[in-house]
Simulated scan of single mutants.
Amino acid sequence: MKEFMFIIRGGEDKYSNNSPEEMQQHMEHWQQWMGGLAKSEQLIGGQPLMSEAKTLTEGGKKITDRPLAEGKELVGGYLLIKADSLDHAAQIAKDCPSFEYGCSVEVREISPME
C-alpha cells in the first residue's frame, strides 16, 4: 500500500459556533471514522493543528510570528493513511467528518524516499 496525506482546510468559522453537545457529537463522529480506519489498518496518524505559526524565510534568517490564514485557507489538521491508489485514498476521504463544517480535504500521495 502507498501512503497519503489528507490536508484539511477551512471550517474554523462554523466549528467555533457550536454548542458543547454539537462538539461532542462531532468528536464522536471523528472517533468512529478514525477507529474504522485504524481497525482496517489504514490509519497511520494525524492531528489537529494550532492556529499560531512561525514562518521562516531567507534561508531561515527571518522568522515571522503570525496567525495563519483564516477561513477556507486555514489548515486545521492532517491525517496520514494507507491506500492502494490516489483514487482509493480520495474514496476514503469522502467520509471525513470535516465536511460537516464545510472543510475541504486535499489528498496527496507521499513520495517514498529511496
Rank of each mutant, 00 (worst) to 15 (best):
D84E: 14
Q42A: 06
N18Q: 14
M50G: 08
K14W: 03
I7Q: 06
M34D: 09
Y101W: 13
L37S: 08
K82I: 12
W33K: 05
E70I: 02
C103W: 00
E70W: 03
S16P: 00
G59I: 13
A90G: 04
E109C: 04
T57S: 15
K72H: 09
G36R: 15
L49W: 06
S51F: 13
G35R: 11
E58I: 10
N17L: 07
A69M: 08
A90M: 10
K54P: 00
K54E: 12
L80P: 00
I44P: 00
L68Y: 06
S51V: 15
R66F: 03
Q24D: 11
D87G: 10
E28C: 04
R9Q: 09
E41K: 07
P67M: 13
L56N: 03
K82M: 07
D65E: 07
E73K: 12
I92A: 00
G46I: 01
N18V: 00
I110E: 10
S98K: 00
S98T: 04
T64R: 09
N18K: 11
S104Q: 11
E114W: 13
A89S: 12
G45C: 13
W30G: 00
L56R: 04
G77C: 07
K62H: 13
I81C: 03
V107G: 01
A93Y: 02
E12T: 15
S40R: 13
P112L: 09
Q91N: 14
P97C: 06
D13C: 01
Y15Q: 11
A89T: 07
I7A: 13
W33V: 07
V105M: 06
D95M: 13
G59R: 10
K61L: 13
V107H: 02
L49H: 09
V107Y: 02
A93V: 08
G11D: 02
E41Y: 00
M23V: 08
E109A: 10
H26F: 15
M27R: 12
Q31D: 11
K61I: 04
Q31I: 05
A90F: 01
Y78E: 01
K61V: 04
R108D: 06
M27H: 12
E109I: 02
H26V: 06
S40N: 14
